[in-house]
Design a protein around this nucleic acid. Structure first.
Lengths: 112, 112
DNA sequence: CTAATATTTTTATTATTTTGGAAATATGGA
DNA sequence: TCCATATTTCCAAAATAATAAAAATATTAG
């Protein structure tokens, strides 16, 4: 699973967390690099990796390249892990409810 | 997150999937090695890695060492990923329901 | 105690991933 | 057109992870 390796790296996980919080507006490569104190080429390498895994998407906005989290990519990853594990043993899915999720009809109505 | 790196490796993911399916009875190191056509030292290396991540547990049964999946470890990993992502953007959690999960009261009642 | 089985630890080698400088590419403004 | 900004690609070095042979350890049976 590409998504797993993509997130199994500190810098990439940090990037992804930022982008999830940034929402659909996303954030430019430069802004991320500055925030994470990471040289541009290193950051670019990780962004490409996350994109390859389907977890983020790139778009150009004038001179900047903006990256944004792909929620469907993350959903796929979660679904994959759950299918694997929840499948044989549903008790794995016995989460204590996440408050801000409960508030969303989408979430509270259709989790596995 | 140790759990992410632990599962971001083909052999280890294969081991974990086997053990989840094997249930609490688990499986001996030798049996896993045979099933996955993996030399004993290589397997032992990966088992230790999974154990370090809290995803499996070891117990001795006579001469054999039996490994079993730790559901709570897996639940923690899923919860971590969801908190991260579901948090800001609950629509990520909008899974199409997994059938065998719906059947379990534990699961259908308390997913995020 | 000795032998047989089951597995881990040690160790060295090989393979993969990560890092960042230097050069290249793309966009927009003067 | 020429320059500045934003970012990527190229590439080689450094760091990390995976592999498996050989030796060591643990358990039980005879």
């Amino acid at each position: 699973m590409a998504g797993l390796s993509a997130l199994a790296q500190d810098t990439r996980l940090a990037i992804f967390r930022r982008l999830v919080r940034a929402g659909p507006a996303g954030e430019s490569a430069g802004a991320i690099a500055a925030a994470l104190h990471t040289p541009a080429p290193t950051l670019s390498f990780h962004l490409k990796e996350l994109e390859r895994a389907g977890l983020i998407a790139q778009r150009r906005e004038s001179r900047s390249l903006i990256y944004a989290a792909r929620y469907d990519g993350m959903r796929d990853l979660l679904a994959y892990l759950m299918e694997d594990c929840c499948a044989g043993h549903p008790e794995i899915c016995n989460f204590k409810p996440l408050e801000n999720c409960r508030e969303s009809p989408a979430c509270s109505s259709s989790c596995p």
